[in-house]
Design a protein around this nucleic acid. Structure first.
Ligand SMILES: [Mn+2]
Ligand SMILES: [Mn+2]
Ligand SMILES: [Zn+2]
Ligand SMILES: [Zn+2]
Lengths: 145, 145
DNA sequence: GAAGAACTTAGATTAAATCTAATCTGATAA
DNA sequence: TTATCAGATTAGATTTAATCTAAGTTCTTC
């Protein structure tokens, strides 16, 4: 996604392409590791001190509302953000809280009886366990094969 | 789950059955609507002022660690708690934030290539959309059938 | 009943996020 | 052009959620 595309997608979402907003979006596109709002603020503000904390948070909220960015809530930790590209699932590490992408695959819908009068918009799968970095440290429990 | 069972499950989890801890667990068993920590504290403390805020939070943490209670993180809102009974999925309302249970059904695992060196412990499905109470208010968009 | 571990507590503290109210920017129209 | 004004930004205050601290209490075990 190049600069022109970013600008276009912001405008499609009804948002002006300001330097601050662009910087937040660009940072997310370049850093796919699900940074927190605070991490985004620090990086963007370091590169260009015109972007304040309030603006970073405002823009993240606006980008999420416009559907350009996805917010991932993690229990007991700060929310993480993700410039929505291809559809995908998430893996959350029990130990270090890392959020990682898992290639998307289709998930069966609940049957309409279970859904009742609810209107379904989306469904996401969250996997939990130990990430590749944390798994070896807990190898004590693992069985030698 | 009666009082004796609750006591037993606490002890199985390596936790003493104190009046405060019992009250938190009992409240969760009686209120399946996914209350927040603050709601739990207020209800439990109103019924018996011996249970302080710190204790409510400490006990929720201990109960989650012992696997007796499940914590559900919701973006932009306080975490919600659930006395883990049968396995189930969750539906989260876009509009009001309500968390509702969806009957459990089996979900296909990601293939082992996608999983890499990660150790998978659990997987949960989160549905999003409008709950039965919020759906009608957004009916403008709906098509008359 | 002494000792130590587990537990509870009020209030302070931290961390995350939002709000306030003033200012700035840029698109549009007179 | 220049005036207008919604949209955007800002520093700092505030709110909210949750945790920590340090002192006291209750159990359990010996
Ligand atoms: Mn992602
Ligand atoms: Mn539930
Ligand atoms: Zn990890
Ligand atoms: Zn709702």
């Amino acid at each position: 996604m190049d600069a022109r595309e970013v600008k276009q997608s912001l405008e499609d979402g009804g948002l002006r392409c300001t330097p601050q907003r662009y910087a937040v979006m660009a940072f997310l596109l370049e850093h796919a590791g699900h940074p927190t709002a605070s991490e985004i603020f620090e990086a963007v503000n370091r590169a260009d001190p015109r972007c304040s904390r309030a603006t970073t948070y405002n823009n993240l909220r606006d980008l999420v509302r416009a559907g350009l960015v996805r917010e991932v809530a993690v229990e007991g930790r700060a929310a993480r953000f993700d410039a929505k590209s291809e559809r995908h699932h998430h893996f959350i590490c029990d130990r270090c809280g890392a959020v990682e992408d898992i290639a998307w695959y289709k998930v069966p819908r609940p049957d309409s009886r279970a859904l009742g009068k609810r209107v379904l918009r989306d469904c996401e799968l969250i996997f939990r366990g130990l990430c590749a970095r944390c798994a070896p440290r807990h190898a004590s429990r693992a069985v030698r094969v």
